[in-house]
Amino acid sequence: MDWANLFTVALGAILVNNFIVAQFLGICPFMGVSKKVETASGMGLAVIFVMGLASAICWPINELILVPLGLTFMQTVTYILVIAALVQFIEMFLKKSMPSLYEALGVYLPLITTNCAVLGVVLQNTQNNYDFITSVVYGVTGGIGFLLVIVIFASIRERMEFSKCPKAFEGFPIALMAAGLVALAFMGFSGLKVFG
C-alpha cells in the first residue's frame, strides 16, 4: 500500500480537484440545501456516507461482474441502479437501527440519488483504474471536500440574506456569484502539489 499515493488522492479530492468548485459535480444540492449551515452540514455528512459506500460497492461489482462478463458498456445503468438501491437501503436501515442518525440525515438521503457527485465519483474510480482502497479513500475524501465547501457557502449565504443587492440579482443569481467567489478562493489550491 502506497501511503503517499493515497495522501495525494485524498488531498486532491478535498482541495485541489474539489468536486463542487473545481469539477462542477453536485451543484444542484449545493445550491438547493445551502441556505442554513445546519442543513448544509447534514447534507454534507449524508454525501460522505453515500459516496464512501457507493465507491466500496461499485468497485467489486465492476471488477467481479461487469469486466469478466464483458458488460462494461452497462456501467452507467448499473451504477445508477446500485446507487438508487443503496440510498433506499441505507434509508431503511437507518430508520430501523439508528433513529437519531436517520433524524439528522433523513430528508437529504433521497435527494442524493440525483446528486451527480455520487455517480461522478464512481465513474471516475473506474476511469482512473483505482484499486479498492484508493476508490474508497477517493469517495470518502470527495465527500469531505463537498462538506467543506457546502458549509463555507452556507455560512456566506446566511450572512448575505440581510444585505442589499440589485433587484434582478435577488435570490439565486447573487448566490451563484458568491459561489463563484468561493470557487475563486479554491483556485488558490490548484498549484498545490504533493510529492512532485
Partner: peptide, 15 residues
C-alpha cells in the same frame, strides 16, 4: 475556469 462559469450563469439568470 470554474469561476467564470458561476459568474456568467449568475449574470444570465439575473438578466
Amino acid at each position: 475556469l470554474p469561476v467564470g462559469g458561476f459568474i456568467t450563469l449568475a449574470v444570465l439568470i439575473a438578466a
